[in-house]
Amino acid sequence: MALEIITANRLGDGLVIFLTADGWSARIDEAAVSESKDATAALLARAEADAGLVVGPYEITVEQQPDGSLHPVKYREALRTRGPSVRTDLGYQAA
């Protein structure tokens, strides 16, 4: 199966975050990776238990690069890890 991770937006500021082994991170590379349906379901259940902190968790498919970094397969999700393509001074890509 393709690799999956869980993403959501943070309740307080709406920024994009990813479920990690023990919480949430703004960095996709720190995301907890699932390799099976069951593991994804378990991650999603953990994410949903955080409904007081995050909004709308869902799973996305990623590819792992040789250097270990995670890249979303869908362009939409890639944009979420970066920021608007038309304003490269904004969002995570600006940092």
């Binding site: 937006n9 500021d13 709406g14 920024l15 994009v16 409904a51 909004v55 709308g56 939409r76 944009l79 979420r80 920021g83 608007p84 904004l90 969002g91």
Partner: peptide, 20 residues
């Protein structure tokens, strides 16, 4: 969130790709 969403929307607050 399910209860809050219609309330925030009626105050113009969406959740978009990168932020509110």
């Amino acid at each position: 969130e399910e209860q809050f969403r219609p309330l925030r929307l009626m105050n113009g607050l969406y959740l978009q790709l990168h932020a509110y």
